[in-house]
Amino acid sequence: MKVNLLIILIVFSLESCLGQTDKKLISNWNTHPIPTNPDSLRKYGFSFHEWAVYKKNDSVFVVDKKELPSPQLPFKIKVKKADSRDFGGRASILKVEDGYLVGFYRGEWGGALYWVSSDGKNYYKISSHEIVQFINRGGKQYAIEGLAHLGTSEGSIIEIYKPNDKWAVREHLKLPTAPAVIALDHQDNFIIITSKSLLKVGRNAQIFFLVDKGLWYAALYPNSMVIRNNIIYAGMRAGVYHYDLSTGKDSWLLPY
């Protein structure tokens, strides 16, 4: 009897683990229509689940956001007291030929963009932009920056370039609302989810509204995005947003 009970427990545990593994593949999530009911959107806004997406071996996976490792530099920086306030909040890191670009986002308390040497012994401040995410396109370095707070939502795409011995920034494009995530489509257009909209930005810096007001506008906070086979997958609170760039059709993916 005890042996049978042990076998049942082992099988149950294996099924649970396999089920969790299967659910990490976005292809095993269930497709639902985009919710429009205010009560449903409100319920999603209070969800405890913050889903994040990533691509590996040409497959799209989804995990709890807490499972994704935070970006880390391979060394400790000895920060001067005068700069200590800047070195806080959510960090973004981009490796460049002479070291690292490090961006900090602290919400309504500000942000900063720094260059750090490859050994961490030297650094300097480039700007006070609130860096949300870096992206490389055609060998050039860009970042989305901005803030959505209370009644304010604003931001831009900036280019980070090196005119002489030091890195500098210039505005590439002002965005209609604060950006949350960015990726490149197969034509190297910027695909951006802002606090309100889904945008495509062409190489000539022209903005196309793919979705003017997305369901995430109800406080679902997009945190990650990947594009595979011309399909956008965006991780956010409660579920994953799915948008077909070829057809313009979207849906809402849930693990049940």
Rank of each mutant, 00 (worst) to 15 (best):
M1N: 12
K2R: 15
N4E: 13
S13T: 10
L14H: 02
L14C: 14
L14G: 06
E15W: 10
C17E: 10
G19Y: 08
G19H: 05
Q20C: 04
K24A: 01
N28S: 03
W29T: 01
T31S: 15
I34G: 01
P35A: 13
S40G: 06
L41T: 02
K43W: 06
Y44Q: 05
Y44H: 09
G45V: 02
G45P: 00
F46I: 07
E50Y: 10
W51E: 00
W51P: 00
A52L: 06
K55P: 06
D58N: 15
V63M: 06
K65V: 01
P69W: 12
P69A: 15
L73Q: 04
I77C: 07
V79T: 07
K80Q: 13
K80I: 07
A82K: 14
A82M: 12
D86A: 12
F87K: 13
F87D: 08
G88I: 03
A91E: 15
A91S: 15
L94A: 10
K95N: 11
V96D: 06
V96M: 03
E97W: 00
Y100G: 04
Y100Q: 07
V102G: 00
F104L: 11
R106A: 11
E108N: 12
W109P: 06
Y114D: 03
Y114P: 07
W115Y: 14
S117T: 06
D119R: 11
D119P: 04
G120V: 08
Y124A: 04
I126Q: 05
S127P: 08
H129V: 13
H129R: 13
F134K: 01
I135E: 03
I135C: 00
G138Y: 07
G139Y: 06
Q141T: 15
Y142D: 09
A143H: 09
E145R: 11
L147Q: 09
H149T: 07
T152D: 10
S153G: 11
I160D: 04
P163L: 03
D165F: 11
H172F: 15
H172D: 11
L173W: 02
L173A: 11
L175I: 05
L175T: 04
L175D: 01
V181W: 01
L184F: 02
L184V: 05
L184D: 05
D185T: 02
Q187T: 08
Q187G: 00
I192R: 02
L198E: 02
L199F: 08
K200E: 12
V201A: 03
G202Q: 01
N204I: 05
Q206V: 08
F209W: 13
L210S: 08
V211T: 09
V211C: 03
L215W: 05
L215N: 06
L215E: 11
W216T: 02
W216N: 04
A219R: 15
L220N: 04
N223I: 05
I231C: 00
Y233I: 05
R237C: 04
Y241A: 05
H242A: 02
D244C: 06
T247G: 07
K249C: 03
D250E: 14
S251V: 00
W252R: 08
L254W: 12
L254E: 14
Y256M: 03
